[in-house]
C-alpha cells in the first residue's frame, strides 16, 4: 500500500519511494528512507496536504507525493 492510503494515527514502515527524480531525492533527503517508521498525524483542513511524523519531526507532503511512497503497515 502507499502512504496516501494510511489513515490518520496509523503507523507504517517505508518500503520504497517512487520514481527517480528531484522529488524523490528531496523526500529521501528529508529522512524518508526504506525501513523508517512513518505516522500520519493529520490531514489539512481542505483535505490535502497531509502531515506525517518521521524521525521525530513533522513533515508535510501532498497526497500525490504520499502516493509515491510504498509502505507496509
Amino acid at each position: 500500500m502507499t502512504l496516501k492510503e494510511l489513515e490518520v494515527g496509523q503507523v507504517g514502515t517505508v518500503v520504497s519511494i517512487g520514481e527517480k527524480g528531484p522529488i524523490r531525492r528531496r523526500i529521501m533527503d528529508m529522512g524518508v528512507t526504506p525501513g523508517t517508521k512513518i505516522k500520519v498525524v493529520k490531514v489539512a483542513p481542505l483535505g490535502d496536504p497531509i502531515e506525517v511524523n518521521i524521525r521525530g519531526y513533522e513533515l508535510s507532503l501532498r497526497k500525490d507525493e504520499a502516493n509515491q511512497i510504498i509502505i507496509q503497515s
Binding site: 528531484p22 528531496r26 496536504p49 502531515e51 519531526y57 513533522e58 513533515l59 508535510s60 507532503l61 507525493e65
Partner: peptide
Amino acid sequence: ETSSFIMEL
C-alpha cells in the same frame, strides 16, 4: 522547478 510540497512543519 516542479512544484512540490515536501516541507518541514
